[in-house]
């Protein structure tokens, strides 16, 4: 048994061919998930029980079950229904790419809506009362006081969620997608050099994690520029 450093170097460019798809999955599902999360957050914060309970049930299900199982339900499970196979959704649900995007987006939405809720609940009540006293409308209070402050409070947890999403995109390889982990698994099947290939893939993921964390450190610094000590 030998450890072949040259093999790491030669496999890096091959694995990088999957980088585009990894980033594509990450960006598309994160954005869709964020939109969905805002909707769920509004339901969760509403005064009506018939809006709150579906949101709670959604969060409970998607945070309480493994993403891999959710992906299998969507990719293998949904085509069981003939009705779906003949509907306008079929062109989407037949593609492993869209199944992965849907599973990732639905999953992250549950986590992100809770992260954002933490931010909203963390906003100082006094500031909102001050807004009321100054005669701001409900919409103005939400858009100018609650939202900017809640986003700032939610940023650190949100950056962790993006890192976790990056790692979750690796599961797309289980439904035949050739993102980085998928490419790495194919190369290992050919060469049977698991150490070199999987370590090469790990290095790329670690670099991506570093980029995400650095970007969020800069964003947090910008969002908190008013508290910077001079």
């Amino acid at each position: 048994m030998s450890f072949d450093f040259a093999l790491i170097a030669t496999s890096l460019p091959k694995i990088l061919q999957g980088l585009g798809l990894t980033l594509n999955l990450l960006v598309v599902s994160t954005l869709l998930g964020l939109l969905l999360a805002v909707g769920i957050l509004l339901m969760r914060l509403s005064q009506h029980a018939w809006l709150v309970w579906p949101a709670k049930a959604y969060i409970y299900f998607f945070r309480g079950t493994p993403l891999l199982v959710q992906l299998f339900i969507i990719y293998y499970g949904l085509p069981q229904f003939g009705l779906l196979r003949h509907s306008f959704l079929w062109p989407l649900l037949r593609e492993p790419y869209w199944c992965s995007v849907i599973a990732l987006a639905l999953n992250t939405a549950a986590y992100v809506s809770e992260i954002l809720r933490g931010g909203v609940l963390g906003v100082d009540k006094g500031l909102i009362e001050a807004g009321k006293a100054l005669g701001l409308t409900k919409f103005q209070r939400a858009s100018r006081i609650t939202t900017p402050l809640a986003v700032r409070l939610a940023l650190p947890a949100y950056s962790n969620e993006i890192v976790s999403m990056l790692k979750s995109t690796a599961l797309a390889s289980t439904v035949t997608l050739m993102e980085m982990t998928g490419v790495a698994r194919t190369i290992v099947a050919d060469t049977f050099a698991p150490y070199e290939i999987f370590i090469a893939a790990t290095i790329i993921y670690l670099v991506l994690v570093w980029f995400i964390q650095t970007a969020f450190t800069l964003i947090e610094g910008y969002a908190n520029r008013h508290v910077r000590k001079g």
Binding site: M1, V163, L166, K167, S168, T169, A170, L171, S173, T174, T181, A184, R185, V188, F192, P194, Y195, F198, I199, A201, T202, Y205, L206, V209, W210
Partner: peptide
């Protein structure tokens, strides 16, 4: 904390087998 869980699992299983 940075590597995907699936990748660690595959690395460990196939690496150990080798």
């Amino acid at each position: 904390r940075g590597a995907p869980e699936l990748l660690v699992l595959l690395l460990f299983y196939f690496g150990m087998a080798l």
